[in-house]
């Protein structure tokens, strides 16, 4: 038995593979095609009796070029997603930092983000009013409230002092507490979650 059409079959297979991989970066496409070409050459040289049927079986075992291309594309897709997720993380960290330091800008980014639910966004908008600049502004005006009770009895001064102290503590801890809460609730947007779940971990 001889392999009359073996080389033609292999060439046609590799051509189809090239076409299926056409949307991949050239370097990646060449690497995959080159490796498969070497694989076929190695297997053919190891054949005791190279017949058309043996070569066809070899190509069958390698699989449909479309399947190989699908595997290659799933890798490219995974890389794209991983890059997307990294970008997503940076933006959200920036949002949280601005919520503390430049509240209006942080609020705009928070509202536009898809990393939090509406409920979390509303909580984020309410609890740190103005971020730290806002909190310091309020605390700086507390002496006005305190001075209102100067003429009053001692117990009223103590009570107002205690209330203002508690409010100050809350104003100082609430923004950072809210940012920690939002950081723990941050999530991958739902349309990406499905894609990530559909692929392996890396």
């Amino acid at each position: 038995m001889t392999a009359v059409r073996a080389s033609q079959l292999v060439d046609a297979y590799l051509r189809r593979l090239e076409i299926e991989l056409v949307d991949l970066p050239a370097a990646k496409r060449h690497e995959i095609v080159d490796e498969i070409r070497r694989h076929i050459a190695g297997e053919r040289s190891a054949m005791v009796d190279e017949t058309d049927a043996n070569v066809m079986n070899l190509l069958d075992r390698l699989g449909d070029p479309a399947e190989i291309a699908a595997e290659a594309r799933s890798g490219a897709e995974r890389r794209r997603l991983a890059q997307g997720l990294r970008r997503f993380g940076t933006l959200e960290v920036l949002t949280l930092a601005l919520m503390l330091l430049a509240w209006p800008v942080g609020v705009i980014l928070l509202s536009a983000s898809r990393a939090w639910t509406t409920r979390e966004k509303v909580l984020g908008l309410l609890l740190p009013p103005g971020g730290y600049p806002g909190a310091f502004l309020l605390i700086a005006n507390f002496h006005r409230f305190a001075s209102m009770t100067d003429a009053g009895p001692n117990w009223a001064q103590i009570t107002v002092g205690a209330v203002l102290f508690t409010v100050s503590l809350l104003l100082l801890t609430a923004p950072i507490g809210m940012c920690v809460y939002l950081a723990t609730r941050m999530r991958v947007p739902s349309h990406q979650q499905g894609e990530v779940r559909g692929s392996s971990r890396w």
Binding site: I32, H39, R61, L62, E67, I68, A69, G75
Partner: peptide, 14 residues
């Protein structure tokens, strides 16, 4: 499909 090993190896290298 034995051929799918090559894109897989390529990806793991990248």
């Amino acid at each position: 499909s034995e051929g799918t090993i090559y894109p897989l190896l390529s990806r793991m290298r990248s």
